[in-house]
């Protein structure tokens, strides 16, 4: 996403805009949400810092909507266009997220037209550039090439193709992002202060006496692949798969069979690599969920 924001920023710059782009991380770790901001104007930009009133929000993966720290809805207004990469449709997301303005979906698939792995960043930037309406196709092409200069030629070319394909595919929505006028300082809302009562420390920040409270965190949302154990062929040597699971997400039942804790399995697939009998399979998460829904429907 950081690279995607740089591509968009460079494309805008090539088209004559003043540009800022900057990523924001919490921890630099897989699984942590990352943000990248692009600010562009035809005049000099004096504003700094994160964007709190976005004109366009691109959500690269719909699972982020369930992660509070990702703050997908922050700062949305009736003028904000929300583009979300998902397998579900716009109506579903509008309803679910209560988006006040235009809502579009960038269809997610695991492979792209070239048959290779889908290039999420390039797709997002292609769509974003078209929705802005002020970025030319040539600048997008040049910016993608420029920002991916360090990658092998073939990878760079695939990214350029993906960005342009999505750019072309969004012609119907060209320029849907209108941009909101910059609010003069006087018109900006002051922060809404909440008066907190002075409370004793054990009320204001209660001491946690229980252990293992992290089970409340659903790291299962990170998963893109799901391990599925074929119990019929399982030899119950759970010390091979359950013992080395870093997330303690393979629970061994009374009969000695490993069972995946879907709320916490991050999808690292160590168990798949470990099983000496190859009876744990890696299944794309969306396929597993579709199958589950179908099964629930049948029942």
């Amino acid at each position: 996403m950081k690279t995607a924001s740089r591509i968009l920023g460079t494309a805008l710059f090539l088209d004559g805009f003043e540009v800022q782009d900057a990523p924001r991380y919490g921890a630099e770790r897989r699984g942590a949400p990352i943000f990248a901001y692009v600010r562009a104007d035809s005049r000099e930009i004096h504003e700094r810092g994160i964007i709190d009133r976005p004109d366009l929000v691109v959500v690269a993966d719909d699972s982020l909507c369930q992660v509070p720290a990702a703050g997908v809805r922050l700062g949305l207004s009736a003028q904000t266009v929300v583009l979300i990469r998902s397998r579900e449709d716009a109506a579903t997301w509008r309803e679910r997220l209560r988006v006040p303005g235009p809502m579009l979906v960038l269809p997610a698939s695991s492979t792209d037209d070239d048959g290779g792995e889908s290039l999420l960043g390039a797709e997002c930037v292609g769509a974003a550039a078209r929705l802005l309406g002020v970025v030319t196709r040539d600048s997008l092409k040049a910016a993608t090439g420029q920002e991916l200069e360090r990658l092998p030629e073939e990878v760079r070319a695939r990214n350029v193709r993906a960005a342009l394909r999505v750019f072309d595919g969004h012609a119907d929505h060209a320029g849907i992002v209108t941009g909101q006028p910059t609010l003069p300082l006087a018109a900006q809302e002051p922060p809404r202060w909440i008066d907190l009562q002075v409370e004793s420390a054990d009320v204001a920040a209660p001491t946690i006496h229980a252990g293992g409270t992290s089970v409340q965190v659903r790291t299962g949302l990170w998963r893109t692949m799901r391990p599925v154990v074929d119990h019929e062929r399982c030899h119950r040597c759970h010390w091979m798969c359950a013992l080395p699971c870093p997330d303690n997400a393979l629970l061994v039942d009374d009969a000695g069979y490993p069972r995946v804790d879907l709320d916490h399995c991050k999808g690292c697939m160590i168990c798949v690599a470990q099983c000496p009998f190859h009876v744990i399979h890696a299944v794309p998460e969306h396929e597993a969920q579709t199958a589950e829904r179908a099964e629930a429907g049948d029942a």
Binding site: A27, R29, R30, G31, A32, G211, G212, T213, S214, V215, Q216, V217, R218, T219, W222, H238, W239, A242, L243, P244, C245, P246, D247, N248, A249, L251, V252, D261, D263, H264, K266, G267, C268, M269, I270
Partner: peptide
């Protein structure tokens, strides 16, 4: 023996470490 090791760790799930973190394991 390996089999003497517990089937379930006492450390709880739900940590923010990367998937596949060798340190966490």
């Amino acid at each position: 023996k390996l089999k003497q090791l517990p089937a379930r760790h006492i450390m709880a799930s739900g940590t923010p470490m990367c998937a596949g973190c060798g340190g966490l394991e």
